[in-house]
Write a protein that binds this DNA or RNA. Structure first.
Length: 355
DNA sequence: AATGCGGGGAA
DNA sequence: TTCCCAGCATT
């Protein structure tokens, strides 16, 4: 057997001295807190998620509390974190746990994976960290570490490559020296190595416990592995944003459609173009409208397109009958904005320009 | 197999 | 600027 077989014990020995032992979800490391952290950390860096995690568990300290909370409260706690389907799935999964599993997470890979928002890697992370089950994870860190360690070519997002990496991850987690009691540390160790040593750019190979057997290190190819995602040009879109204030200085928010970006979040009324704005104004207000005050455009980048928002502002708008609060429209005081899930750039616009 | 889905950190 | 991060669901 080559040294590749020693992956797990070497990693674990390194973790004891150099891993991260003070992350907020580690104290206490309950299934609920592990679950929440794993969901928040999907496509999200630790530094970004930490503050959200602290606020979330302070407001909703356990699974039954989450299940009992209104979805809008959960979205408000998620506001600014992005990928809001995670929050909706989290909430739905909590309710299903109350209905089907006595208010706890199931200790079972298939049952966990069947819950919304939990895939194979997240389920394995929960099982290994919360209960010490022998499960392999494969997140962005592990993909990078294994791609380099084994010299796996090809973009890890490609299903065929991902399948290879799963096989390698399963092999390492099966190492006989790896005791179940150390599974939480082993799982954490892989992510810590990827986050602190085997980083995307300029990895600290000289500090790596796996350096003597790492193919990328040995062949001087850490800059080429893992193979980057094929580049593509992002489409550019634009939209009109309407900032309406009534005589009391309240702002009009509209619930976004249940599908698409920012699904079901509250935001300023947003239209595709000038014609859309005209139509919205006539259907919601009726009277002829003024131009409003044009504000600086906002450039926002999504992972799949760029969006330029063109905000305009009106004050002293008299609510027409159809403009009263309903399921999709709400006049809100500025000090109430924190109670709703609002897209980050829209919240930023309002907070910075509201004087 | 490919695409949709946020926001921010880092080079 | 560009890349990608503790991914998953949908098509």
């Amino acid at each position: 057997m080559s040294g590749a077989d020693d992956f797990a014990p070497r990693l674990l020995a390194w973790f004891d001295g150099h891993g991260r032992h003070d992350l907020p979800w580690q104290h206490p490391r309950t299934p609920y807190r592990v679950w929440l952290s794993e969901i928040m950390l999907q496509q999200t860096q630790v530094k970004t998620a930490t503050g959200y995690f602290e606020r979330f568990v302070a407001a909703l300290p356990d699974l039954p509390a989450l299940a009992a909370a209104p979805l809008d409260d959960v979205l408000a706690l998620w506001s600014g974190l992005g990928y809001y389907a995670r929050a909706r799935n989290l909430h739905a999964a909590a309710r299903r746990c109350v209905d089907d599993y006595g208010g706890e997470l199931p200790r079972d890979l298939d049952a966990l994976t069947a819950l919304p928002g939990i895939g194979r890697s997240t389920a394995a992370a929960i099982l290994s960290q919360a209960w010490g089950e022998r499960c392999a994870i494969l997140d962005g860190n592990v993909k990078r570490v294994l791609s380099r360690y084994h010299g796996v070519e090809g973009w890890p997002g490609k299903p065929a490559i991902e399948k290879q990496l799963w096989t390698l991850a399963e092999r390492h987690v099966a190492h006989p020296s790896l005791a179940p009691a150390r599974m939480p540390d082993y799982t954490q160790a892989q992510m810590d190595l990827g986050a602190t040593i085997c980083t995307r750019a300029k990895p600290a190979c000289v500090l790596c416990p796996l350096q003597s057997d790492c193919v990328a290190r040995i062949e001087g190819r850490t800059g080429e592995l893992p193979t980057p995602r094929p580049a593509k040009v992002l489409p550019q879109r634009s939209a009109q944003v309407l900032w309406l204030e009534d005589a009391q200085g309240r702002v009009l928010l509209q619930r976004r459609p249940p599908t698409g970006v920012w699904a079901s979040l509250w935001s300023l009324p947003q239209l595709d173009d000038a014609e859309g704005t005209d139509a919205w104004w006539s259907s919601h207000i009726g009277t002829a409208r003024s131009e409003g005050a044009a504000l600086d455009p906002i450039d926002h980048a999504f992972s799949h397109y760029r969006l330029q928002l063109h905000p305009r502002r009106w004050s002293g708008v008299e609510p027409a009958p159809r403009l009263r609060d309903n399921d999709a429209l709400r006049w809100l005081r500025y000090d109430e904005l924190a109670t709703l899930g609002i897209p980050a750039p829209v919240r930023r616009l309002i907070e910075t320009a509201r004087n």
